[in-house]
Design a protein around this nucleic acid. Structure first.
Lengths: 201, 201
DNA sequence: TGATCCATATGACAGATGTCATATTTCATA
DNA sequence: TATGAAATATGACATCTGTCATATGGATCA
């Protein structure tokens, strides 16, 4: 029997995935969690074989939860399950110690097979996404460029970004300029959108 | 027995929801679809009591599918099931003829209860969302303002927007200016984000 | 048949944005 | 320890953006 903890922030989807996994003879969902914090707690309490983590959870996301779980329970395998096939997400998930990465567009059979795969020690990754990750290359942005882009993505003006990050307006424009150059885009918004789609934010 | 057709574009979520609904004694999922087009076809073929529709599907979305299904099969009840609790979505869904609107953050029990509710002729809507919809008021944007905002949301410059929509650059700036005024925001990007969050795009 | 709104357009102006050159400080690393 | 990268800052310049006044033609509606 493979014991699984399931972490996903949308109640309905979480319940549905639990129902789906419960149809498998050899898989048992021993706990559910709605965010990263609760996922770590559930992992510590139940010591599952595999933990399924969504990435987009607040306040603690699936990547950070992966890091904490791998540190505390090296024997537990982590499988990421997310809507977004973003190269940067995959890279960060693997660096954080995940053994698997599935997008929610995968077929239901692949989920159960994936759980069995990581349990057996394999790395389970969508091949197309792995290729995209290599093609895109690593994140070229510095920490501050990322910070500035993240705030810029909300549409606020330079002076607002500067206030938010306690920087001078000129410095913010410098970071935006270099982020725009590195992403090969024409303005802050395209840079932010591109960085997001690459999984860098 | 309540016969249900389920339309949702993410395979894994669709399969999981089907598994969840199948746990109910009185509900039977008679067909699944991955987009609006297929949903309409499945509805015509299977004549279900209730059809569950995600909104975010391509190329035909859940709102458009609702319209077509209501026109062809007035007896079939439509329930929208979406990630986004956007007031404008709710309004448009009801105008298109939907009987229910649930966000994916709802509890699993509410899904089955909701299906029974719309089957019984009730309108099933999250009360908080209904209030938000009334507070926000109807979409104040003109067709062209919406068009321009949609393109602007991709981050491109005015000349690009103008080229895309076959307008002069000045006209585009006029529309952007009035959209910014109507949304009470400070620039095109905030206007686009706000319009999107309101469900106007 | 006016009144009003929408779609479209132009010109002018002030302010915001993106680029570039340049500079200091800190930190890691060869 | 010297080198380089990152974080931070300023000033200057050209271009882009948002606003406003104004105009025309079509649609709708009382």
């Amino acid at each position: 029997m493979i014991r699984v903890v399931l972490a996903e922030d949308q109640n309905l989807v979480r319940g549905a995935l639990a129902a789906l996994l419960s149809l498998e003879e050899d898989i048992e969902v021993v706990a559910e969690a709605a965010d990263g914090e609760a996922a770590v707690a559930a992992a510590l309490e139940h010591r599952p074989d595999v933990i399924l983590l969504d990435i987009e959870m607040h306040p603690v996301d699936g990547i950070e939860a992966t890091r904490r779980i791998r540190a505390a329970l090296p024997g537990t395998k982590v499988m990421i399950l997310t809507t977004f096939g973003r190269p940067g997400y995959l890279r960060r998930a693997l660096e954080a110690g995940a053994s698997g990465y599935l997008v929610k567009d995968s077929s239901p059979e692949r989920l159960a097979d994936g759980v069995r795969g990581v349990r057996a020690g394999r790395i389970v990754v969508d091949p197309a996404l792995a290729v995209a990750s290599l093609e895109r290359g690593p994140d070229p942005l510095t920490d501050r460029e990322r910070d500035v882009l993240r705030v810029a993505a909300t549409g606020v003006a330079v002076t607002e970004i500067a206030k938010t990050l306690s920087l001078s307006a000129g410095t913010v424009r410098n970071y935006l300029s270099s982020a725009i150059a590195k992403t090969g885009t024409a303005n802050r918004m395209e840079a932010a959108l591109r960085a997001r789609e690459s999984g860098w934010l």
